[in-house]
Design a protein around this nucleic acid. Structure first.
Length: 573
RNA sequence: GCGCGUGUAGCUCAAUGGAUAGAGUAACUGACUACGAAUCAGCAGGUUGGGUGUUCGAAUCGCCUCACGCGCACCA
């Protein structure tokens, strides 16, 4: 088990009788902004009131009390801060050994054991193209799944396909008016999309088309054979195309139960709402009044009696609780739907289900194009598959130019090209909007996926050059003298790797994969700095072994981190 | 109009209420006769949109205000 240094320091401070509890002290201990000031710091401002003494005096006293503890190399007080420097030899020995021992499992934990978590993500609308906007939910959701999985949670991945609603009435109508079977078979989604677009043009001059579409959807909902057959066909063809992209991204799901799956589970909810006296009639529709919660009413059924999106989400949540008995039910869905989620989760709470707040909306910002918001309807879209293909193509060219890894060119080009796109997507806080840019997505220098993958490949290369025997010897950890790797660069790298497991937990609590992404960049930077500052494969064997152990630890940590993001870590690139 | 969100270096973004607000990128400079230059180092770049309050201490919390984005009843 890795030592919890913060906890150790807190215990030392408790023993020093500074007048605070262990928990209080742990809250206050921090990592200084600049590592020159120490590894850990204890600001004494809060103690000033209790002790009625100037903070710098308190800091000085505390520093004197704990300075001779073996954990520290040095303790000094700077103004109101007690700055603590860990003993480097012991730290390097402990941390690097621990990582080398756990290897591919470094960062894993059992904290989620016995808990079940649902992640709903991707959820594209069928018969519509999978465009660059869909990458967000898909890739963020996948990373959140992997992060929770890594923490020992049992996970269920759901692709809540948008496979229902009046839009399919429109689609079927459009197909009947202008459709051609052969065209659809040849290029399903692009063809269906063109029909859909045409529908929206035609409806401007023929408003009766809307009524026809509504009637068609009602027929579909009632199970009319011809409508159902067409719908099923559109659905199958769309999934085939989506799966091509999921394969490229290495993403799979446990369930594709989409909106249509819940169509027969809604009457029960409507009835339950009615029985609990929550349903009111308003302008012909059935609503749940949410004014007391500062929200507009939740529409449960339309005036024609058919149901809505919101009703389906309530039904889906109830179904999932009964079917999976989740501890957390996470929805990775665009921030545009914030209000929608607040509304339906409130409705679930009003139904009296105490698990309502275990349903968590994880929102993310909007992707737009340089010439405006993406619009499938107006044909203003960038296809995700095209983006991935271009990234792979560019990577292929770069690899050929460098000539480092020609034996598995295709595989590597895919890993790096697609990795670049995914990494880019996961590097900012998910709530931020952004404008899609080819330049940015095809840039492989600086804080990018290829940079981290390159660092990994470089570490692999060093280990290859070291030779299998020495790497094995280092992995045994027998009598390795870690005093050879206590330089600033090596020490800084080890500190970053030490934080890795905490970073994963932090990312899980915040539902924020970018926390992992950012930390991976830091580790890669730390490694590259070390690489440049120190010669690794030196003649002296003792020194060489310690350095090989450090490199191996870095290699494994980076590989594990990339794995959490759903990105491959090739050994050569 | 109301609600939610965002605003930090030229650009893209970081920063558990703590020390001198950090990276990348673009511009410029330097390092491949050490293990991979998709790398590293240096230089420069800031009134954290504006105002005000709380606090020993605010990019961070409260209030006001401005700009932008999203949402606000029969689409999802």
């Amino acid at each position: 088990m890795m030592i919890n240094y913060k906890e150790q320091i807190a215990k030392i401070l408790v023993e020093a009788e500074i007048g605070l509890s262990l928990e209080e002290i742990k809250e206050i201990i921090e990592v200084p902004s600049d590592s020159k000031m120490g590894d850990y710091a204890f600001p004494c401002f809060k103690l000033a009131k209790v002790l009625r003494k100037a903070p710098p005096m308190i800091a000085k006293d505390i520093a004197a009390k704990i300075a001779d503890n073996a954990l520290f190399e040095k303790v000094e007080s700077v103004n109101a801060y007690v700055n603590m420097f860990l003993s480097r030899d012991a730290f390097m020995d402990h941390v690097v050994s621990e990582i080398v021992k756990t290897g591919k499992n470094y960062g894993r934990s059992e904290m989620g054991k016995g808990k079940k978590i649902i992640v709903e993500y991707s959820s594209p609308n069928i018969a519509k193209p999978f465009h660059i906007g869909h990458i967000r939910s898909t890739v963020i959701g996948n990373a959140i799944y992997k992060i929770y999985d890594c923490l020992g949670y049992e996970t269920i991945r759901i692709n809540h396909l948008g496979d229902y609603g009046t839009q399919f009435g429109k689609m079927i109508c459009a197909y009947r008016h202008w459709g051609n079977k052969e065209d659809v078979i040849k290029e399903p989604i692009k063809t269906l999309l063109s029909y859909y677009t045409k529908f929206h043009v035609e409806v401007e001059t023929h408003p009766e088309l809307d009524d026809e579409a509504r009637a068609t959807f009602t027929a579909l909902e009632k199970g009319a054979p011809e409508e159902v057959e067409l719908w099923q066909w559109f659905r199958d063809e769309s999934l085939k195309e989506f799966n091509r992209v999921y394969d490229m991204l290495g993403i799979t799901f446990d369930s594709y139960a989409g909106e249509s799956f819940y169509s027969d589970k809604m009457p029960r909810i409507v009835k339950e709402l009615e029985e609990k006296g929550l349903l009111h009639e308003s302008q012909g529709a059935q609503i749940v009044d949410l004014e007391a919660y500062g929200m507009p009413p939740a529409l449960i059924t339309k005036s024609d009696g058919s149901t809505l999106y919101l009703t389906r989400d309530v039904a889906a949540a109830v179904y999932r609780k009964e079917h999976y008995n989740f501890d957390k039910n996470i929805y990775v869905v665009a921030s545009q739907q914030n209000l929608h989620f607040q509304q339906w989760i409130q409705v679930v709470e009003l139904l009296g289900y105490e698990w309502a707040r275990d349903c968590i909306h994880v929102p993310f910002g909007l992707v737009s194009l340089e010439d405006g918001t993406m619009s499938t309807r107006h044909g203003r879209v960038v296809f995700l598959e095209d983006v991935l293909n271009r990234a792979v193509e560019q990577t292929r060219e770069i690899i050929k130019e460098k000539g480092v890894n020609t034996e598995s060119l295709e595989e590597t080009a895919k890993a790096v090209g697609i990795g670049a796109v995914v990494f880019q997507e996961l590097s900012n806080n998910r709530i931020k909007d952004y404008v899609f840019s080819w330049n940015k997505v095809l840039n492989f220098e600086g804080e990018t996926g290829p940079y981290v993958q390159y660092t990994h490949a470089r570490a692999c290369s060093v280990l290859r050059n070291a030779g299998e025997d020495l790497v094995n010897k280092a992995s045994q950890l027998d009598n390795i003298d870690f005093s050879h790797v206590t330089g600033d660069a090596a020490y800084n790298l080890a500190k970053l790797m030490y934080e890795f497991p905490n970073v994963i937990i932090d990312a899980a609590e915040k539902y924020e994969p970018s926390v992992v992404t950012r930390h991976l960049i830091d580790i890669a930077q730390g490694f590259n700095r070390f690489y440049h500052e120190e010669h690794i494969l030196v003649p002296d064997e003792a020194e060489k072994l310690a350095k090989i152990a450090l490199v191996k630890a870095a290699r494994d940590t980076i590989a594990n981190g990339l794995g959490l993001l759903g990105i491959k870590a090739p050994e050569k690139m």
